[in-house]
């Protein structure tokens, strides 16, 4: 039974695409056949983050319009087996997406035996974001520890609960909160919202906290999903997220402020 998961946030620049790439790569690395779809038509980024931008021939909109088959458009990842990327079109806009077209692509992926279909949502609450979430079974809400991001996540949760296909049919989308760019030291210092504050405001279950890490930018620039960088804290935190998503109990890491390391002499003399 395949699952459609939307990665969304409302606000832009919080790490949706980074998280989609990492999450999809993580699921695939665990042996699940996974497709990740870029819904950000006109501002495609997923292909860059995944390092496949030079392999894009056909895109999502071509498939919707019947100009290419799904097989032609899907790009198979060279690093991780079972991982496929469906890039967005850069030359079109979000009006090119329609419910029927998106549904037929998702259904075809399901028929092709994909276990997970990850929809990387564009920012905003307009057509692109709406299309990305409409067919979702589960949602990962990406939030930064910052008030406007939390507010926008709240807004998108409202839309998930009222306008998604699941909601229209009287069901509910399973929601997961993913906090990214978390900096425990700054939380300690009081200039960042704490994990507990965010969970309290949004009142949905937390699936993970990704620490602020230079590895993320580096991974994006080099076109490698950060989860493959197993040395980095962010990569490890994303691995934990995938494990939790698959039902494992994994304790949260990287959420406590680092205590200043005591030097040798300080240790010696107190």
């Amino acid at each position: 039974m395949s699952k459609v998961i939307v990665v969304t946030s409302g606000k832009g620049g919080v790490g949706k695409t980074t998280s989609s790439a990492a999450f999809a790569a993580g699921l695939a690395a665990k042996g699940h056949k996974t497709a990740v779809i870029d819904f950000d038509v006109g501002l495609r980024n997923l292909d860059l983050i995944m390092g496949v931008e030079r392999r894009v021939v056909y895109d999502f909109v071509n498939v919707i319009n019947g100009e290419a088959t799904l097989k032609q458009a899907l790009i198979k990842d060279k690093r991780v087996d079972n991982l496929y990327i469906l890039p967005a079109s850069q030359t079109r806009d979000k009006d090119a997406l329609n419910k029927e077209g998106v549904e037929s692509v998702i259904n075809e992926l399901k028929e092709d035996g994909f276990d997970y279909i990850v929809c990387d949502s564009p920012a905003g609450i307009e057509r692109g974001a709406f299309m990305a979430l409409y067919f979702a079974d589960e949602a990962i809400i990406v939030t930064n520890p910052e008030v406007s991001s939390v507010r926008d996540s709240d807004r998108i949760l409202g839309i998930l609960q009222s306008r998604s296909k699941k909601a229209e049919e009287g069901g509910t989308i399973k929601e997961h909160l993913l906090i990214t760019r978390y900096s425990p030291n700054r939380v300690e210092g009081g200039d960042m919202l704490s994990m507990d504050d965010i969970v309290e405001i949004l009142s949905i279950p937390l699936i993970g906290v990704i620490p602020e890490s230079g590895a993320v930018l580096q991974a994006s620039n080099s076109g490698n999903p950060v989860i493959l960088d197993t040395e980095s804290t962010a990569g490890q935190a994303y691995s934990d997220v995938v494990d939790r998503f698959l039902g494992e109990e994994v304790a949260l890491r990287f959420i406590d402020a680092e205590v200043e390391k005591k030097g040798f002499f300080k240790k010696l003399f107190g």
């Binding site: 507010r151 926008d152 807004r155 409202g158 009142s203």
Partner: peptide
């Protein structure tokens, strides 16, 4: 369920009981 930012709920000729928090902007 929580009443989210941007959501609007009106109970006509009725009392309303909410069993969850309501968000800023709701």
């Amino acid at each position: 369920r929580p009443v989210r930012s941007g959501q609007q709920i009106y109970a006509a000729s009725a009392d309303m009981t909410v069993l969850a928090p309501t968000s800023a902007g709701s």
